[in-house]
Design a protein around this nucleic acid. Sequence first.
DNA 1: GCCAACGTTGGC
DNA 2: GCCAACGTTGGC
Length: 137
Amino acid sequence: MKHWLMKTEPAEWSWEDQVAKGAAGEEWSGVRNYQARNKMREMQVGDRAFFYHSQSDKACVGIIEVITAAHPDPTDESGKWDCVTVQAVEPLPNPVSLARIKDDPRLSEMALVKSPRLSVQPVTEAEWRIICELGGH
DNA sequence: GCCAACGTTGGC
DNA sequence: GCCAACGTTGGC
């Protein structure tokens, strides 16, 4: 099982919105970046990801699970773009902020730090465990 | 196929 | 609100 991090602006799609969808989950549509799309194509059902609030929050706030593998993005008419469907699993009791991640030398290689604009990124097993711990999970 | 111009993202 | 980084577009 692989781990990921998926970014969203809370004003557009927040953790609360995701939780409200319950077990039905929600399609992660609207991604229009090839690198991000390719990461979604690598995802498998059961993979887990951090749900990251960009902009005002800048923190990992919860854990989501992929419940449907990559499929055509219904908001795209060109046929080039895909999305996955994700379901909220549980919140991180202590959201892990970007500042905290940058402070931790063990996390200095994270894509979040190195490629801050990539909206769907891989997370290594070690990074996953560290952030889960920091998050009080 | 290169590269300049432009648009977008996201941290500060 | 600004600006740096980076992806995309379009002219040549």
